[in-house]
Design a protein around this nucleic acid. Structure first.
Lengths: 194, 194
DNA sequence: CATTCAGTTCAAAAAACATTGAACCAACTT
DNA sequence: AAGTTGGTTCAATGTTTTTTGAACTGAATG
């Protein structure tokens, strides 16, 4: 084996392949509205076959201890990484959760769900406010009520759909149930509600 | 009636009920990573029973013409609002798309889908890179390949699930098919539920 | 204990992002 | 054609979010 100096892990800096993983998760992180550094950290851990100690995250990624600390804390909190205890080593080691299924459903629980619950609260307030002003609102009350109702319905649907989505994701890939919906498969048919 | 001055629309400033709608969509917008002003605009339009002209958006919401212009452009692009022609009025009027179904699926098309496609591209590059370095990578090649494969699988699943999700959302609310998923992950019965 | 090592905290600097407003363009009006 | 009106553009400004780094805590080690 002549892998003397350049390949699997430089003392510092990433191997091109590692960078590839990092890029992927940086993209993902930013689309989820998470800080870039969080994506870097996760990508780096995801690429590694073995648990990685804190100081290596800092050194290889070239980020500050502060960032690494905060990023790892966040990732741990949302269940995307976990700590691994390595006997005889004072440092804390981290591994990425690689079971995508887990990752996905904890993302659902940790961020989508709470947001939807925030929405529910807001619709409720809105509906109260409509009733509170109902008399002074005249005809508009009806209109506002129906708009609010539509928000409520939509939001409740989403809340119900969430666990279903979770299940769907756990299904063996080529097996998605496309049969149970009778409707058309592409064209938005005219389904106006006058 | 005697709604002389205070109720349905002040010359400027929002009615409490309108504010409720605005708050809701501001919340939604920020959770989607969109600018707050975009949420305000959409909320305001969503609350209105009639098409609203540009300058009224500016005045009632108290935002600059620039913001309004950009926000409306974005909302139009993603299909969340549309322009309405009002004869004999030089101004452009806007209405919010209130069919939640439409909104949802255009959101899917306009933002989720492209992101997932970005991911695909990145996985592909990653896989190329792994092959390019395969020889120098030694045993690690196998590990990297399998991690990359898992990303790919996951991403493809998401891409397939997208249209399905869309359909699910269009289903009449109390009708969600919860039957077809077996206990954990092995139920190949894509047929109708009982 | 004094020292080093591993990591956290948090104020301050930097970067990213959203908003404003003045200059501008393109119809319409007179 | 000169003036209005309705709206867009984009550089400058303001705001929020991220990152840094130095000071700190709390083990372990000598």
């Amino acid at each position: 084996m002549s892998e003397s100096e350049s390949e699997p892990r430089l003392a510092e800096g990433l191997h091109p392949v590692e960078s590839g993983f990092v890029r992927f998760f940086v993209h993902l992180a930013t689309t989820l509205g998470l800080p870039r550094s969080v994506g870097e950290i996760f990508g780096f851990l995801f690429a590694s076959e073995v648990p990685v100690p804190f100081d290596e995250v800092v050194a290889r990624l070239g980020i500050s201890k502060g960032s690494a600390s905060q990023g790892l804390r966040l990732l741990t909190k949302i269940g995307a990484v976990s700590q691994v205890y390595v006997p005889r080593d004072r440092r804390t080691f981290y591994v990425a959760e690689t079971r995508m299924r887990q990752l996905f459903s904890s993302a659902l629980r940790e961020s989508l769900r709470p947001h939807l619950e925030g929405n529910s609260r807001l619709v409720a307030q809105l509906e109260e406010s409509i009733e509170a002003h109902a008399t002074t609102l005249g005809d508009n009350a009806g209109h506002y009520r129906s708009r609010a109702a539509s928000l409520r319905a939509w939001n409740e649907k989403a809340l119900i759909l969430l666990p279903l989505l979770d299940k769907l994701f756990s299904l063996p890939a080529p097996f998605f149930p496309l049969g149970f919906l009778g409707g058309s498969s592409e064209e938005p048919s005219p389904d106006e509600k006058p």
